[in-house]
Design a protein around this nucleic acid. Sequence first.
DNA 1: TGTTCCAATGACAACGATGACATGCCTCGA
DNA 2: TCGAGGCATGTCATCGTTGTCATTGGAACA
Lengths: 351, 351
Amino acid sequence: MKSHKEPILRDVAMMAEVSIKTASRVLNNDPSVAPLTRAKVLEAMRELDYRPDPAARSLRAGRDRSVGVVVEGIGDVFVASLVASIESRLSDAGYQVLITSSHRDVSRERAIVQDFQQRRCAGVIVMPCTEDSLVGLRLGDLPVVFVDRVGEFPGSQSVVSDDFGLARIAGKHLTSHGHRRIAIVSDSQSVPTTRDRHAGFRQAMEDGGITFDPDLVRDDCLDESYVRDAINQLFALDQPPTALIATNTRLSIGVVPALHLVGRTDTAFLAFGDFPMAESLTPAITAIDHSPHRLGQIAAETLLARLKPGALDVSTEPIVVPAGLIVRGSGELPPRPTTQNSSAAIPARAT
Amino acid sequence: MKSHKEPILRDVAMMAEVSIKTASRVLNNDPSVAPLTRAKVLEAMRELDYRPDPAARSLRAGRDRSVGVVVEGIGDVFVASLVASIESRLSDAGYQVLITSSHRDVSRERAIVQDFQQRRCAGVIVMPCTEDSLVGLRLGDLPVVFVDRVGEFPGSQSVVSDDFGLARIAGKHLTSHGHRRIAIVSDSQSVPTTRDRHAGFRQAMEDGGITFDPDLVRDDCLDESYVRDAINQLFALDQPPTALIATNTRLSIGVVPALHLVGRTDTAFLAFGDFPMAESLTPAITAIDHSPHRLGQIAAETLLARLKPGALDVSTEPIVVPAGLIVRGSGELPPRPTTQNSSAAIPARAT
DNA sequence: TGTTCCAATGACAACGATGACATGCCTCGA
DNA sequence: TCGAGGCATGTCATCGTTGTCATTGGAACA
């Protein structure tokens, strides 16, 4: 029961009394169209409310004004801001943005990127599961930009934070407040970013002359649901930590309620990744702000630069986006006097 | 320098020694292909790592396995979870999900939906700026599902919370704790959801025999950046409120730091929309949990039902997704003794 | 044995746009 | 005055796939 069919270029051409090709030329801003003709065609397009068919266009022209974005999962606050910022920039530039989550599955990630290429996306922005997750894929000359995590792909470029450096600063911040038993809560070290943050942290410990204690390293928190157990176990150690670092926003958001639950909000805590309520908590949370907004914006710019016609001279060096430490209180708590743990470390929940 | 060209159906056909059409039949699971032939073709496809071209497909077939999603802005935590849940369900069902933000601009919203239709999306899910934002659009028979807010469009269906009822419950919750001066902080009432929540709130006030005071209604908080001023002004009133309601998640997240800032965390507060840190704050935040996850899931299911071949008997009645009140403390604070305001209500910030 | 019918396959056009190339006309310089 | 050259426009084929219709060969039936 559709009242009108979609107008196509032929209809425009007929109404303007020109050939289809001329109408096409107007559509593509071909300079070799007489002003008067152009006006007639534009008028016809307006009259018919014509919109070009992207499928036909991309089939014939072999390219499409769309960009694919692959992230771990859009539910995450960090990822959501990252994506929001990418989307905002690219859609202003006239690109349609296709967003899909890999759910941290490498094969899914590969399939998604392949599909984007099949769809003739002009380029893709990927937050890769692992640095080699795209290696070996047949992608033609599809421009690839990795974001938040370095990735490997011929001709690609990565836009990241200085994970090693920031983690080192974070570690130093805690040691300089007198801590010597600092636990790190993270997801798997197969994620490049996470690995770098561990390395930076270890470096900071070494700088402070602190010997490495594997009991304080929890790299088994795949998501926030693992955090509670990890925290419980850390505080059940003979020598529990006096300070904590969480290596990403999602885990940081998990650590706070877990600390409340075990009644150890007197533990120094430094979050990797700032989040909305951080300054309203008691204590307010000290955080490394590796701004997802800026990261996304720069990733988008980087991709746009590669989409410009003659962009062959582009660099493939990783771009490091600056970030800083926001001091709010939780990261400056002093170590509480070392108490040998004797009883179970699960105090009643505060009401 | 691309090593291989993408394999196309012709290559498959040649390798399997059949016609292109037969290969196409295999691709589309046409039953009238001899098992042996089918096997040969499948083998060739595997051999060549063939993947069909979505552009050509959708051009010819007039449809595409993709679904468009339009939301206000993916940066928002509520929206992010909503989208995550939609995306997850639809991509499991084999659809490519296209997500775009309207940035609360009706004309942008319309343009995006038009574009989705041009791209031959199988359907769209829209969180509309206003209920009539799509009215009059030429969309053929594109299935439309509205989410979180009722929308108007011929044949569409909306998946929403019971905004009126929930707001009424929220209001009643506060009045039953003795509050009589309750302020409501919201975005514009041009948003259908917001309007309904105001209505429910007013109903609760009426139920409690409380006379309406326009000074306590702030529907001018377009986003979180307006909240601080609104809160300041509310507490500068001669008779400041003893309780607050915020009508959406984003604003709720803005209210908490604002209350901290003015040192009035003894004000009862009820958030519309739960958020991550709610239970770790002091006081913990009582919230209406109109689960974005469930909302998204049901919206996705609703759309999928309409995408099934013979789905003409579908209902257009709004679907109401249940939600509940999570009691945590902030919503149960008693009114503090009515103090006539004399000094400015901006105490020094707590360090 | 001849006719019918169906299963399996293929030839061809078409979807809507653009690239390569051709054409006609007008201007300009010799 | 004529040819070269450039501008404006048109013709035709093509992108990769699928719908329509035709064709083939054999099984089933009278």
